[in-house]
């Protein structure tokens, strides 16, 4: 009796699991991609707050940090942590400027590397990552989200990242949540809040 109960309960849970996340049909994928690509082409600037959760299985609690991100097309980016410490990283003129609680340093970004990081961060927030040759992408939908799951193709990236999940709220073309999953299964989840697209942003926002 007990076993039967658990079997039913288990299959019920599993079917809920499946019902929650459905693969998109080919036409749905096409629609979704068109929408996102169209929207992101119009993005001149992006401003958002974020909360980052670092999950490691052996810890009892995720490590939570938060801050704000500012982007201005084509390639100005300021990613800033304000809690629980001050740390910011600015991408500007092919250089990376780091301010680690007052300790400042500059790194010359090798142009290709710089481009990749920039593209990954901006693409993660805006959602414009579909034409990338670096990833194989699969598409899912739930009641609340469209989800793009990116699997790296190159061995170099595979070493660091097993999978990137981008969550687009239903009827929105920008990302509200990113999950970067490591080969070990541990992951970093970033949730965006108070997003403003094409707000006026002064260049001084990119000085740290």
């Amino acid at each position: 009796m007990k076993i039967k109960f658990f079997t039913i309960l288990f299959s019920f849970t599993v079917s809920i699991g499946f019902a929650q996340e459905q693969k998109m049909s080919n036409s749905e994928i096409l629609n979704f991609k068109n929408e996102v690509t169209k929207e992101t082409k119009n993005i001149k600037s992006l401003k958002t707050d974020f909360v980052q959760y670092k999950h490691m299985d052996f810890l009892s609690k995720d490590i939570e940090t938060s801050g704000k991100m500012v982007f201005k097309a084509p390639n100005l980016l300021n990613w800033q942590y304000t809690k629980p410490y001050q740390y910011s990283i600015v991408f500007k003129n092919n250089k990376i400027y780091i301010n680690d609680q007052g300790n400042k340093s500059t790194v010359d970004a090798k142009s290709k590397m710089f481009e990749k990081i920039n593209k990954l961060i901006v693409g993660s927030v805006s959602g414009n990552m579909f034409d990338d040759n670096e990833f194989t992408i699969t598409y899912f939908k739930t009641k609340d989200y469209n989800i793009a799951k990116l699997f790296p193709k190159t061995a170099t990236i595979k070493k660091y990242i097993k999978e990137v999940n981008l969550f687009f709220p239903e009827n929105e073309s920008t990302v509200s949540q990113v999950k970067l999953i490591e080969p070990s299964g541990d992951y970093t989840k970033i949730v965006f809040k108070n997003k403003q697209v094409n707000a006026k942003i002064d260049d001084s926002a990119f000085t740290n």
């Binding site: 670092k54 490691m56 940090t65 942590y81 740390y87 970067l180 070990s184 541990d186």
Partner: peptide, 10 residues
């Protein structure tokens, strides 16, 4: 013991 960057990558 784990050491990560501020972005969380190990």
């Amino acid at each position: 013991v784990v050491f990560t960057t501020e972005f969380g990558n190990k």
